[in-house]
Simulated assay, not measured.
Amino acid sequence: MRLVVEGASRAFGGVWAVRDVSLTVEPGELRAVIGPNGAGKSTLFALIGGQLAADHGRVRFDGDPVERLPAHRRARRGVSVVFQAARVFHGMTVLENVMVGAHATTRSGFLAAALRLPAHRRDEREIRTAAMVCLERTGLADWAGRAAEELPLGRQRSLQLARALCARPRLLLLDEPASGLRAAERERLAGLITGLRAEGLTILLVEHDVAFVMRLADRVTVLDLGRVIAEGTPAEVRARPEVVAAYLGPS
């Protein structure tokens, strides 16, 4: 899926959080967005995912404008979101939490589900199988029957990613997925993201950890005070003096 953001702007109380931001993410690319605290990263993320509406600008998926679509309709177009804050459904097992990710894309409708018709039961079997594959992939298979709220933070992050993958995304949005993770958990996450990119999944990664970004991203966009100040390969971005001044600090 090709993502194009054109002149996106959003203000809060008269202060621009994001102003005139444009970027293009090509199919199969892993694009990272970095910047200091308050740079506008999370706001841009929400404008793309549909959690916030832009004051100005366009967002396109494969050429189609989606800036007026709510988040759930963008999800139906193949956009899956993993938020920075761990979000789990309490009172449900880990497996059930992951299965939720696929229900927006099921073929059977509400009536079939309410009446437990064969089409719905078939969908449920397929979703359960797909969810277990996603749990295996994220290292959570042994936790499938446990209550989701019992998972430690790192595992809850993995659960969110498994749920997003269960929706079979074409565009995966990751909001600071490495935040708060231990070194081993970061390594496992990096390996998983690398594998997804190798399979051709388009990924937009918003992250504060520069080292984590630089080893994974194909291209990097740098925000400062709501504006794009640099864009390029990791090596090119590292060499830009404005990036060093705004974010990376002196070497």
Rank of each mutant, 00 (worst) to 15 (best):
A86K: 14
A86L: 11
A86N: 09
R87T: 09
R87I: 03
R87A: 07
R87G: 03
R87K: 12
R87L: 07
V88Y: 06
V88T: 13
V88N: 06
V88F: 08
F89W: 08
F89E: 05
F89V: 15
F89K: 10
F89T: 08
H90S: 11
H90I: 06
H90G: 15
H90A: 08
H90E: 14
H90M: 08
G91Y: 02
G91T: 04
G91H: 03
G91C: 06
M92A: 06
M92H: 09
T93A: 12
T93V: 13
T93G: 15
T93P: 14
T93Y: 10
V94I: 12
V94A: 12
V94H: 04
V94E: 04
V94P: 01
L95H: 01
L95C: 00
L95V: 01
L95T: 00
E96I: 13
E96F: 04
E96L: 10
E96H: 05
E96N: 08
N97T: 15
N97Y: 14
V98E: 10
V98S: 15
V98H: 14
M99K: 15
M99Y: 12
M99E: 15
M99G: 10
V100E: 06
V100S: 08
V100I: 14
V100P: 05
G101P: 08
G101K: 13
G101L: 09
A102V: 11
A102L: 09
A102I: 09
A102E: 14
A102H: 13
A102S: 14
A102W: 15
H103V: 02
H103E: 10
H103T: 14
H103D: 07
A104V: 14
A104M: 07
A104T: 13
A104F: 11
A104G: 08
A104H: 12
T105G: 03
T105C: 03
T105K: 12
T105D: 03
T106A: 02
T106L: 06
T106M: 03
T106N: 04
R107E: 09
R107L: 05
R107H: 08
R107M: 03
R107D: 06
S108V: 02
S108N: 10
S108R: 05
S108Q: 11
G109Q: 03
G109R: 01
G109V: 00
G109W: 00
F110C: 02
F110P: 02
F110S: 06
L111W: 02
L111C: 00
L111Y: 00
L111E: 00
A112W: 04
A112Y: 05
A112E: 15
A112I: 04
A112M: 04
A112Q: 11
A112N: 11
A113S: 12
A113W: 00
A113I: 01
A113C: 03
A113K: 01
A114C: 11
A114M: 14
A114K: 02
L115R: 11
L115S: 06
R116S: 05
R116E: 01
R116I: 00
R116F: 00
L117N: 11
L117P: 12
L117F: 07
L117C: 05
L117T: 14
P118M: 13
P118I: 08
P118T: 12
A119F: 00
A119K: 01
A119L: 05
A119H: 10
